[in-house]
Nucleic acid binder design. Sequence first.
DNA 1: CCAGACGTTGTT
DNA 2: GTCTGG
DNA 3: CCAGACGTTGTT
DNA 4: GTCTGG
Length: 238
Amino acid sequence: MCGRYATSRTKVQLTEAFHVASDQADEVPRADFNVSPTKRVPIVLTSSAPDSEAEAAVRQLRLATWGITPVWMAKAGKKGRPLTNARAETIDEKPTFRRPFEQRRCLVPADGFYEWFAEAGGKQPYFFRPVDGAVLAMAGIVEWWHDPENKTLWFPTFSVITTKATDDAGKVHDRMPMTVQPDRWDAWLDPGLTDAAKVRRLMAAPAKGSLDIFPVSKAVNVSKNNGPGLVEPAEIGS
DNA sequence: CCAGACGTTGTT
DNA sequence: GTCTGG
DNA sequence: CCAGACGTTGTT
DNA sequence: GTCTGG
């Protein structure tokens, strides 16, 4: 679930939509209709790097790497892919996710996300996007990271929280990203809110009927392919 | 106390 | 099968 | 998430 | 680092 999505909005659009002061916005590169794990993409968060002076909590738009690599994994040289998803059902129990969930949440702006439906004749990609055209705020957690061998710069990495897919979405795939409705963004991004039970209530699966779901070209399968054509409806199998 | 796991997805 | 790259 | 590689030596 | 199992 949610291992690929699209985020094409401009820096200006994102700062306005998420009420980020313009001087708190990182440079946002070109529109990306084929975001895959390990790519750097814009997220919205309230916090600063661990080694910076304690600044006032300010909402920021920053580029972050998709996929958390726990420090213990890097130090031990353990093999293992970066963690691109975290299950909502157990996020406040897992050692790797609990602290980030309580203290370092983020919003991941998306036009929509892709899921692959396994059917006879191969896997068919589908795109899921809000019916109303609004930006989709996926629920995420942040882990600050630096290379253990090169402890100079800290930078944010993130995972997208997932849940069981509801109604129509569940027909395509059994998991989907958690989202945060706009009226809950302030609370979600509030570092002072650390009660996991309360935090949990701020996120929700996309409401029934709120997403358009349609097949797209298999061109999206190849992660180097990009462009707005990837999110246009296409015949199944094309 | 120490040892050992620590994550998700999909697929088998 | 399993790992890396995007 | 899917696609695509999956190796070494010596030489440039 | 932090949590669970023994």
